[in-house]
Write a protein that binds this DNA or RNA. Structure first.
Length: 239
DNA sequence: AAGTTCCGCAACCGCGTCGCG
DNA sequence: TCGCGACGCGGTTGCGGAACT
């Protein structure tokens, strides 16, 4: 084991880079179709995704999982991370297990980009205040000042990307039955040019109309609508 | 307005561990 | 017990947008 092991998959045959909408959909549908209680892992072969299983896992855990909490870390969460990091070090998964809805990757990124800097500032201020006998401000007060400054500069995940994912999950979760045939997923590839990482291609993705159209298309294709709804949606698709 | 630099985040990579045959 | 494949984890990279000049 260890060194010299073969790659987890044939690198020349797997797709890399940002995930497309159709790939996301296939991955989510594969989860929706499998018995999650059993914990059957990544059926990327089943849905014929040209993605490495590890990549599927990562995409699911960090982005597509319905319970992933998105957006800003709260000051409480940041404090928790700092405290847990003190206890566990760079054991991100361990830290993530104490923060429901947050992923290890996300925490790692926040730590490396924000909290590390914040700690440096805190240490600096600690040093300054300890060396200055005239300082009357409490450590906590300084801490909060730094904290708010840091939070202001914290850039949230694109809200439009979030909206798209949330729309997607509303759609998926509203659909209690799972009539989808995995074999019918190939036609979704026509939507491959839509890229879910809308932060990178806003023109393509943030268009909510396109998003809605996409979802409507899926509902029709997957046979999840009543006749009346379908008429209405067919009209919508004509637009 | 255009070019450059900085920053944040998603995704990839490699290694360790686990579980099964 | 061994070998292999899959999973899990932490470190790192590269892309794209924001900020700056």
């Amino acid at each position: 084991m260890g060194k010299g092991r073969t790659a987890c998959c044939d690198k020349s045959k797997v797709k890399k880079g940002p995930w497309t909408t159709s790939e996301d959909l296939k991955l989510v549908l594969s989860y929706k179709n499998m018995d999650m209680a059993i914990g059957v892992p990544f059926l990327n072969k089943l849905v014929r995704l040209l993605r490495c299983g590890k990549s599927c896992r990562l995409r699911w855990i960090n982005y597509l999982r319905p319970d992933v909490k998105r957006g800003n870390f709260t000051p409480q969460e940041e404090d928790t991370i700092i405290n847990l990091h003190r206890a566990f070090g760079n054991r991100w998964s361990k830290i993530a297990s104490h923060l429901p809805g947050r992923t290890d990757n996300e925490i790692k990124n926040v730590w490396n980009t924000h909290l590390k800097k914040r700690l440096v500032v805190m240490k600096k201020e600690e040093y300054n205040s300890s060396s200055s006998s005239t300082s009357t401000s409490s450590h906590q007060g300084q801490y909060m000042d730094n904290n708010s400054t840091t939070l202001e500069s914290f850039s949230p995940t694109s809200s439009k990307a979030n909206d798209q994912v949330m729309d997607f999950w509303e759609y998926m979760l509203d659909t209690s039955s799972t009539p989808t045939s995995i074999n019918n997923l190939d036609h979704l590839d026509s939507y491959s040019n839509l890229d879910t990482t809308s932060e990178h291609h806003p023109q393509q993705l943030v268009d909510e109309f396109e998003c809605q159209k996409w979802l409507t298309y899926l509902e029709i294709e997957l046979g999840l609508t009543t006749n009346n709804q379908q008429d209405h949606q067919n009209n919508f698709m004509q637009l």
